[in-house]
């Protein structure tokens, strides 16, 4: 018996992962299958905590001032509230609105133009961008390798005593994958746990007829790229997806954002030009600019009465998920940072 225990202990110690609790990713009821391949990056609670630590740690930026959370704040669905364009190190301003982060396991391409092809490599873009974190990724890994604190975390989470770039990115992915928002009033209505008001119901009907072909339920985005008829900004001159694909038909197309938590994720559009939902609806009824790549659904003008606009907004507010916005598991990791080497 003693031999069996000793062998089991040796196996546990050598395997490295033995005491790590794996994380079961749950797909909400009636949602599609996630596209992220969890087999290539099996989640565990330690790696998720490590990823959360990295997400909130300004060590990722060149001058240790900006973290992922600087532009992706939890209470606003992980976008940058009140900032049309986010600012990075040395107050440098970028050219696009920070996208909200949620339900990332269902997305294949990232950024407004889909420049990033996998969640694992997404973090490289803001880390390296001179207007965001302005840091080289090899330098980030070097800084982490020098930290005794992170050494322990990587060893526990990935059995990695050296800290690799691969595991740094995979840890950040693991935390971001947990950012699932599926507990709005809309969701509870779908689960027959509550009911829409008459106004919300009217708004939902209008939404289904006019908006849902791009903002597809239940994720409230098709995650495709569309030109929604915004006049081109002379200052930013942002041509959108064509910069990545070089196809003419992709000119001025941007990724369709999810409408979940839209109440808190203002300002809206790829350049944050609209502050209020009413401005967004006014754009769709009066502001569409025609062009060769305009989305087919927007070629026929949309018409909503003032009351109908209010109804649609009432419905959109049912997409707010406070259990997501205020979930302490996604917040600033106070306990971890008490022992952080940066403090």
């Amino acid at each position: 018996m003693r031999k069996v225990i000793i062998i089991a202990l040796i196996l546990c110690l050598t395997s490295g992962y033995a005491f790590i609790k794996s994380y079961e990713f749950t797909v909400p009821e009636n949602w599609p299958k996630p596209v992220y391949n969890f087999n290539k990056n099996p989640p565990n609670f330690t790696a998720i905590e490590l990823g959360r630590n990295l997400f909130y740690d300004p060590i990722l930026s060149k001058d240790n001032t900006i973290s992922c959370a600087s532009c992706h704040l939890q209470y606003t669905a992980f976008t940058h509230v009140d900032h049309a364009l986010s600012h990075g190190i040395n107050d440098r301003i970028g050219t696009r609105n920070a996208p909200a982060l949620m339900n990332l396991a269902w997305q294949r391409q990232f950024m407004w133009d889909g420049a990033i092809n996998h969640l694992d490599v997404q973090a490289l873009a803001p880390i390296n961008h001179p207007d965001e974190m302005g840091e080289s990724f090899d330098s980030v890994v070097f800084k982490l390798q020098k930290s005794k604190y992170y050494k322990k975390w990587f060893l526990l989470a990935f059995n990695d005593s050296n800290i690799s770039g691969e595991h740094t990115l995979k840890a950040i992915s693991q935390f971001m994958l947990t950012l699932v928002s599926s507990n709005s009033k809309y969701d509870s209505v779908k689960r027959h746990q509550s009911k829409f008001t008459a106004q919300e119901k009217r708004g939902y009907q209008l939404f289904k007829i006019n908006c849902s072909s791009c903002h597809t339920e239940p994720l409230f985005s098709s995650y495709q790229f569309e030109n929604n008829g915004l006049p081109i900004s002379n200052e930013l001159k942002d041509s959108g997806r064509i910069r990545i694909t070089h196809y003419l038909q992709d000119a001025f197309k941007f990724k369709v954002p999810s409408l979940r938590n839209i109440e808190f994720s203002y300002p809206y559009m790829h350049d944050g030009r609209f502050k209020k939902l009413s401005e967004v609806l006014n754009h769709y009824t009066q502001g569409i600019q025609s062009s060769e790549t305009l989305a087919a659904q927007l070629r026929k003008p949309m018409a909503f009465s003032a009351n109908e606009k209010v109804d649609i907004i009432a419905f959109l507010l049912t997409l707010t998920d406070k259990t997501f916005l205020f979930n302490p598991k996604f917040g600033y990791p106070k306990k971890i940072f008490n022992t952080s080497p940066n403090k």
Binding site: N117, L119, V140
Partner: peptide, 21 residues
């Protein structure tokens, strides 16, 4: 298209574009 990889393919080797995958 395979995400973060290790060894010689580790993005920290300086051979991975950040602005576009």
């Amino acid at each position: 298209n395979a995400g973060a990889l290790g060894g010689d393919l580790d993005p920290s080797k300086g051979m991975y574009w950040s602005w576009q995958s």
